[in-house]
Structure formats: structure tokens, C-alpha cells
Amino acid sequence: MSDTTQTATGASAPVTRSGEDLSEVRDWIALLKPRVVTLVVLTGIVGMIVAPGQLNPVLAVVAVLCIAVAAGAAGAINMWYDRDIDARMRRTARRPIPAGRITPEAALFYGIALSGLSVMLMGLATNWAAAAWLAGSILFYVLIYTMWLKRRTPQNIVIGGAAGAFPPVIGWVAVTGGVDVLPLILFAIVFFWTPPHFWSLSLWAHGDYARVGVPMLPVVAGARETRRQIMLYTIVLFVIALLPWALGLAGAIYGVTALVAGLGFLFHAWRVLREEQDETGRSLLNDTAARKAFRFSLLHLAALFAALAVDYWVPL
């Protein structure tokens, strides 16, 4: 798209609107929650790598693309449904829909269209079992987490976290057509990782959730109980993350990584638990420990799955 303006000689010259066009493209990409999709894609790729059997490289790339698009599509529908509360939360008020840069109707159509496309393409490129798991992950995130649990129960992120745990299973099924012990353990790792990861965020964003009436754990049970739950889930996660090595499904590279990264996460969870607090459990240090735990949790999950992939290629 372009407009015209007058040059020094009086002639009309085109003025490009590439900046505006680029900004619009960024908004459509933002609807897909690309930072969330990055970890989703990583876990899906690793599920494919460690699965027995082979998948044509081109079809493998298509399968990864389908996982990414499906995750993004679910995120777009989530933004459509949550547009009312997003507009009232500082952390989300500048998202494309509440900011008025994309209409809710367009975002919903975008999410539904990409969801259907990703599931259909996954079925054609790999197998329909993988497509069914992919469809299930979208429906779980949209219907179970976003529309049912999120605004009704403090267990929203515990149960709803299963939506983000599907990708390694989907990657495995794309190669094998079935499910085995290892992908189920990978599912459990992501499932138990999600609560301490997200509750660390919700400790310092609790004001936003309280303002819009979303019953996140710090809002309903208080900061002190949230800190205890973060510690508890991190302990469970530490044990589960060691299972692939303990059961002989992964080698030394993964085992050492799981041990070191797990101890690191436990250290951060302990700091969250013991951070200087008032009588209600609210931090007196601007939730510094929770912020650090949140950032470390991202590194922790990425390290686990990357190590599993390396372990597959360089067994020791």
C-alpha cells in the first residue's frame, strides 16, 4: 500500500507504508504467542527425534510446522476469548485485540482456520493418529483451560497445563503412529513443570489477576501457599525428570543435565519459599526470587529436552 506526496519539483512521489504493513504483520504474529510456541516446538521436535523409526525429512519439517501453527492457533483463540480481561491487565493490555489493532472476529477466524489447516496437514503428512492428538491439544487448551478452568478454579493451570504437555507425544506419534512409555514421561515432565513455572509468574503478576477476577492460586490461596506449592511441584518434577535416565530410556548426558538443572530449579524454588515476606506471604523484595525462578524454569525445560536430543545423537 502507498500514498503520494509532493517532491521539491512539485511532482508526485510514492510514499511507502512498509512500516505500517510490517507492524500489522507483527500483530498477526503476536496473536500466535510466538514465545510460548518456541518451547512447544522444541518439545515436539525432541519427541520426533527420540521416537523409534524414521520420518521423511520434508514430512518431519511439515509435522513440526503443524505443531507450531496449532499451538499458535490455540493462542489466537485464547486471545479472542480473553480479550475482556486482557484489556484490564497491565501485562496484556497492549495485545493486538484489546489495543484495537485486530478485530475479535478476525482473530477468531484466524485461529479456527489455522487450527483446521494444521490438523488436516498433519494427518496428510504423517498419520491421522498424530492429527487426532494435535486436534486434542487445541481443543484442550481452548475448551478445557481457556473457556472452562481459567476463570473458575485455582487449579486452572494444573489441569490446563496438560495442553502444553501434548507436543512431545504428538511428535512421537507422528513418527510411530502410537504411544510408549518415554513420550508419556515427557508429557509428565511438562505437566509438572507448568505449575511452578506459571505460579512464579503469577506471584508478581497477582495484582492483574485479582483485578480481573481470575482465580490464580496467589489470588485465592495467598502468596504463602503458592510458595509452598511451587516447592512441592518442583520436588515432584525433579524426580520425574530423572525417570528417563533411571529407566534406561536416556543416557548419561540427559541424566547429568536433569540432575544439575533439577537442582538449580530446586534452589530457585527454595529461594521463592524463603524470600523475605510480610505476614501474608507477599514479597518484601519485589518478588525478585519469583522472577528469577520464572526465567530459570524456561532454561530448565529447554535444557532437559535439548539434552535428551543430544543424548540420542551422542549416546554415552
Rank of each mutant, 00 (worst) to 15 (best):
T257N: 04
Y209V: 07
L217F: 09
G164A: 08
D208L: 09
I189E: 08
Y233Q: 02
V175L: 06
L184K: 12
W204Q: 08
G213N: 09
A250T: 07
E275I: 00
A252M: 09
P183V: 11
P244G: 00
I235Y: 07
E225T: 11
L242C: 03
W245L: 02
V173N: 10
A261I: 09
R227A: 04
D180I: 09
V190F: 06
V169M: 07
I240T: 02
D208A: 05
L249D: 08
V219P: 03
V179Y: 14
A188V: 11
A246C: 02
P183W: 15
T257K: 02
V239F: 02
F198I: 12
I253E: 04
L242K: 03
T176K: 03
A188I: 12
G248W: 14
Y233S: 01
A165I: 07
A250E: 10
G178E: 15
I189S: 03
R274W: 11
T226N: 04
F187Y: 12
V212D: 03
D208T: 11
R224A: 10
Y233L: 00
F265S: 00
L263V: 06
A205I: 11
A261G: 00
M231G: 00
L201S: 11
I230Q: 02
F192C: 03
A174E: 14
R227K: 07
L203A: 08
W270E: 04
E275F: 05
L232E: 11
L243I: 03
R211D: 12
G264I: 01
A174R: 14
L266D: 13
V214A: 11
L203G: 10
H197R: 12
F198H: 14
A258I: 08
V272D: 07
R227P: 00
I185S: 06
L259Q: 05
L203Q: 11
I240S: 03
L249P: 05
G171Q: 06
L201A: 12
R224N: 09
G213H: 13
T194D: 01
H206Q: 14
L232F: 15
L247C: 04
V179P: 02
T234F: 06
P183C: 13
F192G: 00
W199R: 07
P195M: 05
V181E: 13
R211E: 13
T257L: 01
W193S: 03
V260N: 01
W245F: 14
V220L: 07
A241N: 12
L201T: 04
V181K: 15
A252P: 05
A250V: 06
I189M: 14
W245Y: 15
M216A: 05
R274V: 04
T234C: 01
G213Y: 14
A269W: 11
A188H: 13
L247W: 15
I189L: 10
G251F: 13
V212H: 09
I230W: 04
L247I: 10
F166I: 05
A246V: 14
V179E: 13
W245M: 02
H197M: 04
T257W: 12
E275A: 07
V169H: 06
F265D: 01
A188T: 14
L184E: 14
L249N: 07
F187Q: 04
F191L: 14
T176W: 10
I235H: 08
W245V: 02
R227T: 06
R224K: 12
L237R: 01
A261S: 11
E225R: 09
L263Q: 07
G248K: 10
V190I: 13
G251K: 08
T194L: 03
G255V: 07
V256S: 06
L186W: 14
G262T: 09
L263F: 13
A269R: 05
Y254M: 00
